[in-house]
Design a protein around this nucleic acid. Structure first.
Lengths: 112, 112
DNA sequence: TAAAACCAGTTTGCATTACAAACCAGTTGT
DNA sequence: ACAACTGGTTTGTAATGCAAACTGGTTTTA
């Protein structure tokens, strides 16, 4: 049997990291986002946002579409299906873990 | 006004990091823990656990008491008051943020 | 019509990390 | 006596996360 704490320690850092958690959650809440809007939402610097997005793209959690709107280059970011389930599962997992901790706590008290 | 995503990106990494989240949560759930018990609970390697604990001690979130039990050296770890509120607040904050996201999401839909 | 300022990002450099392997001081088994 | 075990700590390394500097183009200003 594995404790909830062990599961906690094993949380996926790619998703759990605050900046990326913010990005993925924002993407799951908003329908479509371009780079600058996402920057405003998360408060990240451009450089920071850019590297996090690359990492997420590499993991196939987001899709990045670069195109022009008139003469302006625009980067639009989407969650992939994989990304959508990943971020939803992560939040669910956090909730679940917290419940499991409470349960574990009761069992400890009971078996004493 | 600051978005929930911005708050999310600003989460305290000292506490949020999976291994330390596990350690602090375990400490808040169990009454007293010695090093080896904590290692079993979290599944971390000794080295890893040791350095994380040092970091948490430095931040005054935990107190580390080294003493002998017969001839065995035993390290017992406690949450400080600061640590106790920190971990509780963190979990609460996560829950709160999730709620705030849902709220934000509704507002976006409404204002479209 | 230069050049200064701005836009939409990317790359670079650096300081911090998280991690496991190696290590250490002592104790127990054989 | 010496090998194996306990209870950890220190060390080395590869991977972050971050902002500052840069890039390639466009618009404004002088």
């Amino acid at each position: 049997m594995t404790t909830p704490f062990e599961a906690m320690a094993g949380l996926d850092r790619l998703i759990h990291e605050p900046a990326r958690l913010a990005i993925l959650t924002a993407l799951s809440a908003a329908q479509s986002v371009d780079f600058l809007f996402l920057q405003r939402l998360t408060g990240l610097t451009k450089g920071n946002l850019s590297t996090h997005l690359s990492k997420l793209e590499e993991a196939e959690l987001v899709k990045i579409d670069k195109h022009f709107e008139g003469k302006k280059p625009i980067t639009t970011i989407y969650l992939t299906t994989k990304g959508k389930t990943a971020i939803n599962n992560h939040w669910q997992q956090l909730e679940q873990l917290r419940d499991n901790v409470r349960e574990w706590e009761q069992q400890q008290k009971a078996s004493e």
